[in-house]
Design a protein around this nucleic acid. Structure first.
Lengths: 179, 179
DNA sequence: CCAACCATGTAAGCTGTTACATGATTGA
DNA sequence: TCAATCATGTAACAGCTTACATGGTTGG
């Protein structure tokens, strides 16, 4: 595959740059003033990540010199973003990288393909319901009986939370179909 | 202060060892078979983390030699665990380290102080409601209007999710008071 | 005796954090 | 002119993942 060398923050940057070319500073400000803050913080990670994307050929700065340079996606960048966006949601992603799944969904409208978004949400919902079922099984089983009250409550939080995510996905499918 | 050198996984281990002395292997198995899996994976992180805790003097192995050695907390380990458990929940923890807050709650009954657990849940709920309010404000404000539909839906997921957490905390307070 | 499970690690490398540091532009 | 904002980085390090590697014990 070669490609890939992109991490979580890298994908967030690719998506943001795709929606509108921006300077490093503008990008950094987004991370300081919007909920995308969850995906990083501060210059120490953003600038190096941008440099890495540039080095790998996923973004370029234009005009090539001077002030007011903005990052743009290259074709390779577009392709990498698209591939990342189109992957279905798996159990592992729901269980351990829910934030990445949400990030992918937020950018998925870039493709301009509503069916792709609906497919995404369907796989998201299915994976979330499956994870909910496995947590419920755990709570009902032998291991679950050994939990302290607070241990059980903590697992129940996980269960409620993932059901909430599944319900969100169901609702989002409706909203996408309407509007 | 000096102390601290403990990371996320380290605290999970301290808590598990406190509830019952265990071998490295037993600890590792817990991470492979229970929902605490969220906090790590596989030997590559667990064994080094145990070594680090031992080096820092938070745990010891007993008997000192031979097979069937189990990890136990030292006094320093108990103190570190207690300090970590007793800290109130802040906005940052809700927004970016919710998993750590839940881990802390799961182990908090170790202290045998129901009031402490109730205080924890109260601060948890307050921080979650505050974070919900800030997300709602974002969605209503100028920045929120610029979002694409899917961007908005993604933020709404965050909002619903944190409300779900706050509601869980409210419910958990009731359950603790009853039982 | 052999398979399954118990048990413990190392090495390389990637990501991201923290803390520090610098300088240009622009409006009051 | 001076404060605020725009703008961009570096260095050190922490923490975790992945992949690899090894050997002991025990019951059938």
């Amino acid at each position: 595959m070669a490609e890939s060398k992109i991490a979580r923050l890298g994908y967030a940057l690719l998506g943001l740059i795709k929606t509108a070319p921006r300077s490093g500073y503008k990008l950094r400000m987004l991370f300081e003033t919007t909920p995308i803050a969850t995906y990083s913080s501060s210059p120490g990670s953003i600038y190096p990540a941008l440099k890495a994307l540039e080095k790998e050929g996923f973004v370029t700065q234009r005009p090539p010199t001077g002030a007011k340079r903005l990052y743009h996606l290259t074709e390779a960048g577009e392709a990498a973003l698209k591939a990342w966006l189109e992957a279905p949601v798996g159990d592992e992603e729901i269980a351990r990288h829910l934030d990445m799944a949400l990030l992918r969904f937020a950018f998925l409208d870039i493709l301009g393909d509503r069916e792709a978004s609906l497919r995404f949400l369907a796989s998201f919902e299915a994976a979330a319901r499956a994870h909910a079922a496995s947590l419920a099984t755990f709570l009902d089983g032998a291991d679950g009986q050994e939990l302290t009250l607070q241990g059980r409550l903590a697992v129940e939080h996980g269960l409620k939370s993932v059901i909430c995510s599944a319900d969100w996905a169901a609702d989002a499918q409706q909203r996408l179909q309407e509007g």
